[in-house]
Deep mutational scan, measured.
Amino acid sequence: EVDTLELTRQVKEKLAKNGICQRIFGEKVLGLSQGSVSDMLSRPKPWSKLTQKGREPFIRMQLWLSDQL
């Protein structure tokens, strides 16, 4: 189980620290539009309420944070 709230907090922190905009992060890392990324980072759904497809971007965020992506 992933703590989506904590994960998105860490992602936002790393984006800010490295000067990466959400649009680029969305396109290059998540394969999503800036609007989708913005929504996901500001209002993450609980892991238990996400479908497999809904969980994929959060898994990619985890990999990106651990420099595996």
Rank of each mutant, 00 (worst) to 15 (best):
K12S: 02
P44R: 12
L65A: 01
C21K: 12
S48E: 09
Q10L: 13
A16C: 09
S42F: 07
F25L: 03
E56H: 02
E13S: 08
W64K: 00
L32V: 15
Q10E: 06
L32C: 08
F25K: 01
G31I: 01
G26K: 06
Q68V: 11
Q10K: 15
Q62L: 04
L30S: 02
V2G: 13
Q34I: 13
T8N: 07
P44F: 09
I20N: 02
Q10C: 03
L65P: 00
Q68E: 13
E1H: 08
V29F: 07
S33Y: 09
S66H: 13
L30F: 06
L50M: 05
Q68F: 09
I24M: 12
L50F: 03
S48Y: 10
R55T: 03
W47F: 03
G35I: 06
P46A: 05
L32S: 06
L30Q: 02
P44Y: 12
F25M: 02
T51D: 15
I59Q: 14
K49R: 04
F58I: 01
L30I: 04
G35D: 08
S42E: 15
G26W: 01
V37K: 05
L32Q: 04
V37T: 13
D39E: 14
K12H: 03
M40P: 05
E27C: 09
R43G: 05
K17G: 05
R60M: 02
P57R: 10
R43N: 12
A16I: 03
L50W: 09
E13Q: 05
E56A: 10
K28D: 07
R43M: 05
S42K: 13
M61P: 01
L32K: 07
I24K: 10
P44N: 02
V2H: 06
G19L: 03
L7H: 05
Q22Y: 10
N18L: 15
Q34V: 15
K14M: 15
K12T: 04
L65G: 00
K17D: 07
G19W: 03
Q62E: 03
Q10F: 05
R43H: 13
L5M: 15
F25R: 01
E27W: 10
Q62I: 04
E6N: 11
G35T: 14
L69N: 11
Q52N: 06
K12I: 04
K45H: 04
L41G: 09
I24T: 14
P46V: 02
A16Y: 05
R60Q: 09
S33A: 12
M61Y: 00
A16F: 06
K49F: 04
W47K: 00
T8Y: 03
Q52V: 12
G54E: 15
D67F: 01
L32A: 04
L63F: 04
R43A: 12
P44K: 08
C21E: 12
C21H: 12
I24Q: 14
L69I: 05
F25P: 00
Q34A: 15
R9M: 13
L69V: 11
F58P: 00
I20M: 12
L41S: 05
S48P: 05
W64H: 00
P57Q: 12
D39T: 07
Q22W: 12
L7C: 07
E6Y: 07
T4W: 13
T8D: 06
V37I: 07
L7D: 11
G54N: 06
L15D: 06
V11C: 02
K53E: 13
D67Y: 03
C21L: 11
Q62G: 11
Q62H: 08
M61G: 01
L32E: 05
D39Q: 13
G19A: 03
E27S: 13
I59W: 04
S38R: 14
C21T: 15
D67R: 13
L65S: 00
P57D: 10
W64D: 00
G26V: 04
R55K: 15
D67M: 05
P46Q: 11
G31D: 08
R9V: 08
I20H: 02
D67A: 06
D39G: 14
K14F: 15
T51L: 10
L63A: 15
L5N: 14
D67N: 11
N18D: 08
T51K: 09
W64F: 05
R55F: 01
R43T: 07
M40F: 06
R43V: 05
E1G: 10
L41R: 05
K49S: 10
K14C: 15
F58Y: 15
L50E: 00
R60T: 06
K53F: 02
I59K: 15
G26N: 07
W47C: 00
E13D: 15
L32N: 04
W64Y: 03
D39N: 06
S66P: 00
C21N: 14
R55P: 00
V2I: 15
L50I: 02
T8L: 07
G19T: 03
K17F: 04
V2R: 12
S36T: 13
D67K: 12
T4R: 08
L5W: 12
Q62M: 08
V29H: 02
L15S: 10
N18Q: 13
I24V: 12
L41M: 06
D67S: 10
F25H: 00
P44H: 05
S66R: 14
W47P: 00
Q10W: 04
P44V: 07
R23A: 09
P44L: 08
L69A: 07
I59H: 15
I20Q: 06
E13W: 03
P44S: 07
Q34F: 13
K17H: 02
S48K: 10
K17W: 04
L69T: 06
V29G: 07
R43Y: 14
L30D: 01
Q62C: 04
R55V: 02
L15N: 07
F25D: 01
I24D: 12
D39C: 08
E27P: 09
V2Q: 10
Q10H: 05
G35R: 14
I24C: 05
S42D: 14
L15A: 14
S42W: 02
K53W: 04
K17V: 07
